[in-house]
């Protein structure tokens, strides 16, 4: 059972990572030329929430199954803090794009925020994997 839940957890993680990557690429000013950041965000951010919710459900099941494996470890709390940061950044990017669209301004381009955003998602994966070792 644990193996099956972990498989779903990894598949959801891959989906969130790619949706985040698409959002970051658009924010960095590259690609999806016929669509604004706001439009891309309206399609992809709800999908990110669905997969984050599935990650929380499968993650909770894994904790219930093996609480000793994660709860006593500091790296687990680092991962949760990073998840909160990723969720906040996703909301902020979507809100930023919406405001720019409403005011008629050009879509915001910020490569630094896009890079930091993807580094946060990568750090979540690293922290998640480290739970098994430390």
């Amino acid at each position: 059972m644990i193996a099956s839940i972990q498989m779903v957890h990894i598949l959801c993680l891959a989906c969130v990572f790619a949706l985040g990557l698409a959002l970051a690429l658009k924010l960095a000013g590259g690609g999806f030329d016929s669509e604004s950041l706001d439009s891309l965000g309206r399609r992809f951010v709800p999908a990110i929430w669905i997969f984050v919710a599935l990650l929380l459900v499968t993650g909770s099941l894994l904790i219930i199954a093996e609480p000793i494996r994660s709860l006593p470890k500091p790296v687990f709390y680092i991962k949760m803090a990073l998840v909160a940061l990723a969720v906040s950044m996703t909301s902020a990017i979507a809100a930023w794009a919406r405001r720019a669209q409403r005011s008629g301004a050009t879509a915001p381009v910020n490569k630094a925020v896009a890079v930091v955003y993807m580094l946060v998602w990568c750090s979540i994966i690293v922290a998640g994997r480290m739970i098994a070792y430390y």
Binding site: L13, A14, V16, I125, R129, M130
Partner: peptide, 21 residues
């Protein structure tokens, strides 16, 4: 092993996630 595994998981998330999109 743990460090290489972390990079492997990030890489596979990029591969499979973008393929799904």
């Amino acid at each position: 092993f743990p460090k290489v595994e972390c990079v492997h998981v990030i890489a596979l998330a990029a591969v499979v996630g973008t393929i799904f999109l």
